[in-house]
Amino acid sequence: MNTHIFSIVTFIYLAGMVVYIGYLAFRSKWVSRVASLILLGGWLLQSFAIALRWYESYQMGIGHAPMSNLYESLVFFSWTIILIYLIIEYKYHLSILGAFVTPFAAMGMAYASISPQVNEKIQPLVPALQSNWLISHVVTCFLGYAAFAVSCGVSITYILKKKQEEKGKKTGLLASFPSSDVLDDLIYKTIAVGFPLLSIGIITGAAWANYAWGTYWSWDPKETWSLITWFIYAAFLQRGVKAAMLSIFGFVAVLFTYLGVNLLLSGLHSYGAG
C-alpha cells in the first residue's frame, strides 16, 4: 500500500518541479503559489506514507523505522530535502530556488520507484541494524545530506547569478534572482546547518560501530567517504575560497557517500545497497 502512495508522491514532486521551472519562465506570484501548494501536498502525503510503512512493518511482525534499505533511505532523503526546502522558502520567500532543489527530491523518488535495483519490500532487520542508534544515525545523516542538497541548488543559482552580475546585464531570467550576496549567505547558512548534522551523523555512526563491532573507526569506504565529505565542507567553512564550487563538489561527495559507495564499492555498510 505505502509503495503505491510513494509512486503517486513521485508524480506530485515531478509536477511540482515542472511548475517551479515554469515559474522561472513566467514569474507570476500565482505560479509559485501553485508550486508551493503542490510540493506541500506531496510532502504531507509522503509523510503519511512513511508513517503507514512504519505501521505496516509492525503489522508484518518485523517492525522497524522505515530507514533500513536503499528504497527507504531514498524516500527519506527526498522527504528531508522537501522539508528543508519548504522551510527555506517559507522563511526567505525564495520560490526561485525550487527549480534547482526539487529535482533532487523528484529524482530520488523516481529512482526509488523505477529502478529494478531498488527493492521496495519491507525487509526484516539484520542483527547489526537492530539498535536504537539506527534512527538517530540515519536521521542526522539525511538531514545533513538534505541541507547540502539545498545548498548545492543555491550554489548553482549563485554561479549563474554571479556570471550575470559580472557581465552587468540587468534583464532576462536571472535579473529577478536574489543578489549573489543573498545567495552566498544562504549557501553558508545551509552548510552551517548541514555540517553539524553531518558531524553528528558521523559521530553516531562511530558510536554505533563501536557498540556493534568494537571499533569506532575502521576506514571502511562508507566511513572514509563521509569523512571526505566532511573535509570538503570543513574547507568551505574556512571561507576565502570559491565557496559555491566547493559546495557543489561537497554535494557530489555526499551523493557518492550515499549512493556511490554502496553501488560501486564494497564494505561493511552494505545495507543500503538493495
Binding site: W219, T224, L227, F231, I232, A235, Q238, V241, V261
Partner: peptide, 16 residues
C-alpha cells in the same frame, strides 16, 4: 588549512 583539507579529501579516495 584549506590545502590540507582538500589533500586529505583527495588522497583518502585511494584507500576506498
Amino acid at each position: 588549512t584549506i590545502f590540507l583539507l582538500i589533500t586529505l579529501a583527495t588522497v583518502s579516495i585511494i584507500g576506498t
